[in-house]
Design a protein around this nucleic acid. Sequence first.
RNA 1: GCCACUAUAGCUCAGUAGGUAGAGCGCAUCCUUGGUAAGGAUGAGGUCACCGGUUCAAUCCCGGUUAGUGGCUCCA
Length: 637
Amino acid sequence: MNNIKITLPDGSENEYPAGTTLIEIAKGISPRLGKEALVAKVNGQLMDMGSPIKKDASVEFLTFEDEEGKQVYRHSTSHVMAQAVQKLFPGVKFAIGPAINDGFYYDFDVIDTFTPDDLAKIEKEMEAIIKANLPFERFELPRPQALALFEESGQNYKVELIEDLPDDAILSFYRQGDFTDLCAGPHIPSTGRLRAVKLLNVAGAYWRGSEKNKMLQRIYGVSFPKKAMLDEYLFRIEEAKRRDHRKLGAELDLFSIQDEGPGFPFFHPRGMILRNELEKYWREEHQKRGYQEIRTPIILNRALWEQSGHWDHYRENMYFTKIDEADYAVKPMNCPGSIMVYNNRLHSYRELPIRLAELGLVHRHEMSGVLHGLMRVRCFTQDDAHIFMLPHQVREEITGVIDMIDDFYKVFGFSYHVELSTKPEKAMGADEIWELATGALRDALEAGGLNYKVNEGDGAFYGPKIDFHLEDSLGRTWQCGTIQLDFLMPEKFNLSYVGEDGQKHRPVMIHRVVFGSIERFIGILTEHYAGAFPAWLAPVQARVIPITDRHAGYAREVVGRLDKDGIRVDLDARSEKINYKIREAQAQKIPYMLVIGDKEVDHCAVAVRHRVRGDLGAIPIGEFEEKLLEEIRVKAY
RNA sequence: GCCACUAUAGCUCAGUAGGUAGAGCGCAUCCUUGGUAAGGAUGAGGUCACCGGUUCAAUCCCGGUUAGUGGCUCCA
């Protein structure tokens, strides 16, 4: 028998008889690898561990430590779940069951709805399947047999999937025990490799993700090779709940959303401090960068929205009203208003670019099911700006905005990723214009050396966009900043500037936001900092805590002095024990607590306690004040 | 909008085989004057989300509405 040569990632080579399986090779390298390897990459291609190798190849074994190993592990778990469901719910129809970010899901079509009790039963059944250590067996079928297999068993979703595969596709199947599924694979060697599985929740999900299709029942779950990893995952979920901006927003008295206005948040005094600080910073930065601030009306005539294209493309998201018999709309976007300002007089090419910024309150009718705290609301303030410019200024302006957004996010310590969104289905304008605009955005991204992913069909109806996505505490990402290049609105509104030649020309327009919406940004900030806002944003920056009533006089002096210098300070002069008052200040995540007793009164000092660093000892009041003002000035966090 | 679940005091949650409810925290008053995460006593707070049905009787059972939660779809 021939020998073949196997090359490992470290460059070492070994010879094996042709036809040796991957699992045997792994075991030969080390027993531990034999136990931990889930799949292998053979010449860059993922394969089952049971596959025999017949030719020379480079082989890399993947475990749960590898991203692709994780994917396979989770995907195999979804098959085990499907097998359990098949046993407990005869007649169930299977849709799809992929691995996802943290775990896996499988979509089922069943008559009864799954209850939490059912999940427990399914989990139990899964444990039995895992214990039985059933091998995952791969086999292939020609198309007619494959179709027959699923038609016979009434698996119409699988039939549909097969019909949509190209004619020359290899139809592979995986079987463990009495469960067989259409699947490209690969899979782990056997069900016994699974350890810690937990089913999390049931949710409705449309077949193929379209709301026109039937809604199926999706079960989400997670799966790990070690119990400790599952525990850690569950702990992370709990931690995320503690950081939830909706919970913290109520506890810290930042905002509320009430039945009288679903999706329309109320900002409380403390929340307004946050907002105002963000806006102050925003105004400073925009002034520095040559923006001029405007404010445009919230309600404008319907004719304007017909002209802008919103009437045709955005109507179902808009609110309407009547004034003196005429139709008006509440603005869902600020661009038409900004355009009205630009168009109010003639502009010379010498003036361009003109950067008009607006903290604009927009209203959008979002579907009731999508509302989510401050992250998804029905009215929000966009930190908008529209840049009107000459065609050759596009690149520089886009780069300027990209830099600005980066500067902003750095201040908060955010990491983000960038996406380029292209022409959507419900778009306005010709393909050539879209290609031109999309190309310009791509050029700017590449010139800036930014990594980005392309998000097909996700652009605005009037133009493609660059999106900046921030992560929240649950690892969900939220679109915040966007840059949209628009050749269409200038057309629709007949925008012009007078060029060097004395003729009228068409300017190009950029729409952009940095925070995105102030509301959403505050939600993300709250979770990011777990409510412990850096001093420059903290609604209360310092709390003065006298130990007994006889220290209250001096405490009031301290408060007066700090307050005079613009520090947000309050006083807790209640006749409570100091432990109690400190506990409360800690719970409210106030950055500094200034404890005042006899010693501090004698020395004109304050005993400083920081919410994280703890007791910092007594220092002269002036010294504390100086340090805090500096911390605020540099926006330290 | 769709699927599932939920709604009891300001907050977190008990509770009733159907007979109009209870704890802890918070709040108020008093006592306590205490050096870095809960001192004590007393007290006030609820049309049990809303509308209808079944019943002698509904917070509880049934239907609907509204809102919230987790997803799906959609989005800043």
